[in-house]
């Protein structure tokens, strides 16, 4: 099987150069992100303080698709790392022609950008950009089409890790629109790399991937069966478009069949946690009583998102420095007989 994606995002030392997807990454890559993220959170106050890690670096947030939450957390993370931040909201319509998209990138690159944080409505857009940028520029995927949203998935792993410790041995159930969700694709990949015991997805077949076996997941049509004995429940936002394209009859029917209620929560382990990458549709995929309940960790996820994004950017910049130092020292060694 061809797997050129990991080659694209790893440098010669096998370390992260870009962060495009979790597919193809190793256990240690993910653990490093979780560990570094943890160092940014004050153990007592749970606050994130400012550090000089990316001082002098320019980060450009290229959002070809509108976003407020992801853009905001990236921006906060970048500022806490002391980077210079430029936000660019680029309407996709003005970049329909490839020349323009690449010209835009090359122009921004010439303005001494070190990192592009990219969000785009096409699956594979971050890969495309990573393939065409200069060697010194790093690309971080902030969501591409229905493909991947790796920083979101890593913050979810961080949250699970905080509450449950080692992800190994956990049973995780993801409820809702799996097929159209880049977040879920990345979550599934993260969970399988971290060797979760079982990854279940719950929902009607219209919202399931056509080939779930390719993702190593178990599909449940019935929510009660799917929640039986799980440690972690992840709820996914249901988009309005799904009703328009006849994938579902109505929000009401979805809630009746798959909405996460107090009663259904009882099927999971008593200490199971409830997560949601947001924004929440109360009364559509989750009952308010559960969203705001004891087992919910939804708001924590937002704070951790900043730490995880700081970790990813720090690691990528550090790896580049090490690679540079490595090639310098080997060049020096070659010169001295």
């Amino acid at each position: 099987m061809r797997l050129s994606t990991p080659n694209l995002q790893l440098n010669a030392q096998g370390k992260l150069r870009h962060f495009l997807t979790l597919e193809g990454l190793k256990h240690h890559h993910l653990m490093e992100i979780l560990e570094v993220a943890n160092t940014f959170i004050d153990p007592v106050t749970h606050q994130i303080s400012k550090v000089p890690n990316l001082h002098g670096k320019t980060i450009m947030n290229l959002f070809f698709e509108p976003s407020t939450r992801t853009l905001t957390t990236f921006e906060i993370a970048e500022k806490r790392l002391s980077a210079d931040v430029v936000n660019l909201n680029i309407a996709t319509s003005s970049t329909k022609k490839g020349e323009t998209l690449l010209d835009t990138l090359w122009n921004l690159q010439a303005m001494m950008a070190d990192v592009f944080v990219v969000r785009h409505s096409e699956s594979g857009a971050a890969h495309f950009i990573a393939k065409h940028v200069a060697p010194h520029v790093h690309v971080i995927n902030a969501g591409d089409g229905q493909h991947a949203h790796p920083t979101q998935a890593m913050l979810d792993m961080f949250t699970i890790h905080k509450h449950k410790g080692d992800i190994f041995d956990l049973k995780v159930a993801i409820i809702g629109d799996i097929q159209h969700s880049r977040v879920v694709r990345s979550q599934i990949q993260a969970l399988s790399i971290l060797e979760a015991r079982e990854i279940r997805v719950i929902g009607p077949k219209t919202l399931m991937p056509s080939h779930p076996q390719a993702l190593g997941i178990h599909v449940y049509d019935n929510i009660e069966e799917g929640l039986e004995d799980v440690d972690v429940i992840i709820n996914v936002r249901l988009q309005n478009e799904r009703m328009k394209s006849a994938l579902l009859p109505s929000e009401k029917e979805f809630f009746n069949l798959y909405g996460l209620t107090k009663q259904r929560l009882n099927y999971a382990k008593p200490d199971a946690i409830v997560m949601h990458p947001g924004p929440i549709n109360r009364g559509v995929e989750i009952d308010s009583a559960v969203a705001d309940g004891e087992q919910s960790v939804i708001l924590e996820q937002v704070t951790y998102g900043i730490a995880v994004r700081m970790a990813v950017m720090t690691i990528i910049i550090e790896n580049a420095k090490q690679l540079m130092a490595g090639s310098l020292s080997s060049a020096l060694q070659e010169e001295t007989p």
Partner: peptide
């Protein structure tokens, strides 16, 4: 194509 690769990559599918 609607298959194992589109399921992994999230590319819009043609059955």
């Amino acid at each position: 194509h609607s298959g194992v690769i589109s399921s992994r990559l999230g590319l819009a599918e043609i059955t």
